[in-house]
């Protein structure tokens, strides 16, 4: 996965790690949208995506002293976000509560705002099809095809094999195609 954001936010990272909330707020403002996008697309709900985004930044604040700067801060916080979403999915699976079913959360529009009449090729269609994917396939699709993670990285994060990640991705793409051409 490629890093993004300012080339050098290491000064703010150092300040934030020593307890500077203002520095951490600057990091939050820089990385908010990317983290929110990842959370929302992986869980399939804007409302839940906002809650998870808050959890990500709270966790990042707690773990920041352990951040060694071996990767870009953007890469690190993205990884934190993925872990938060995956943990949330496990918890949700246990409780069988919230969404993460094959359908989006009841009453909630797909994560991307609807524009005009759905038409194959529109981004809205891609988003709607994505929201209909089963949770596992959706997360692999988002991580690989949307976020650009490699299968080896996904395998490590999700606790599966690279082969499993490839198979899930293939399944997700075929399901997406089926949904879009129906």
């Amino acid at each position: 996965m490629e890093s993004y954001g300012p080339a050098d936010d290491s000064a703010d990272v150092t300040l934030a790690a020593s307890g500077d909330r203002r520095a951490f707020e600057r990091l939050y403002r820089t990385h908010l949208n990317r983290v929110f996008t990842l959370c929302t697309r992986m869980c399939g709900s804007r409302v839940r995506g906002e809650e998870l985004t808050q959890d990500v930044f709270v966790r990042a604040w707690e773990k920041l002293p352990q951040f060694r700067g071996e990767s870009a801060f953007s890469t690190w916080i993205h990884r934190v976000a993925v872990n938060i979403v995956l943990t949330d999915r496990k918890n949700e699976g246990r409780n069988r509560k919230r969404m993460l079913q094959d359908e989006p959360e009841s009453g909630e529009a797909p994560v991307e705002r609807a524009g005009t009449t759905p038409r194959y090729g529109d981004r809205m269609d891609i988003s709607a099809a994505m929201s209909k994917l089963p949770p596992g396939a959706k997360q692999i699709f988002v991580l690989h095809d949307v976020e650009g993670y490699k299968h080896e990285e996904i395998a490590q994060m999700c606790g599966i094999t690279a082969g499993g990640s490839k198979a899930q991705l293939h399944r997700a793409r075929l399901l997406m195609r089926e949904a879009l051409t129906r």
Binding site: G19, N33, T53, Q54, E112, R123, I126, D145, G148
Partner: peptide
Amino acid sequence: QAAALPVMAPSRDLWQGIEARIQPAVV
């Protein structure tokens, strides 16, 4: 198309909720 999906923004500022939850100092 998946690779070209745009970055999204939340409907509200989430900082207040985060700030209320983070500890004052990390040593």
